[in-house]
Computed example of a mutant assay.
Amino acid sequence: MSNKPVATPNGSLPNQVPRQPEQPSPSATSASYARAPRMLDSSALMGDQALVLIQHQGEIYRLQTTRQGKLILTK
């Protein structure tokens, strides 16, 4: 019988850290959904304004705060 180590199903040898699966290229469409979303504080967007206009793909959206401090996004 051989003393040669046998690879596990994921390709690593015993006592080794398993290989991580290959990450999709940054240009892949699904790659942006695989990463954690960017978090911004609402004050970074709103500043001292109650209404901010956001242009997205040629459309204008309104982001506004209510009297109760909630956010509303409308087209």
Rank of each mutant, 00 (worst) to 15 (best):
D41S: 03
R19F: 11
Q16D: 01
A28M: 12
G47E: 13
S27W: 05
Q68W: 02
M39T: 08
M46H: 03
E22T: 10
L73H: 07
A44I: 06
R19L: 01
L73V: 15
S43T: 10
T74I: 07
L53G: 10
T74L: 07
V17T: 15
L63G: 05
P21Y: 04
P37R: 15
A31F: 11
V17D: 12
P26Q: 05
I60H: 06
D48E: 10
A44Y: 05
L51K: 13
P24K: 06
E59Y: 01
R67H: 02
S25A: 13
P18K: 01
L13D: 00
I60C: 10
E59R: 01
N10P: 01
E59D: 10
T8M: 15
R38N: 03
G69D: 06
A34S: 09
Y33N: 09
Q55Y: 00
I72W: 04
L71K: 06
T65I: 04
K70R: 13
N10V: 04
T65F: 00
E22M: 13
L73P: 09
Q55K: 14
L13H: 00
N10T: 13
A7M: 05
R62Q: 08
R67D: 06
K4M: 03
Q23E: 12
H56M: 07
S42H: 09
P14W: 12
R35Y: 01
N15T: 12
I60E: 14
T8W: 14
Q49V: 03
I60M: 14
R62V: 08
A28F: 07
M39Y: 10
R67Q: 06
T65C: 04
Q64M: 05
E59M: 08
K75Q: 11
V17C: 12
R38Y: 00
T65R: 02
G47A: 09
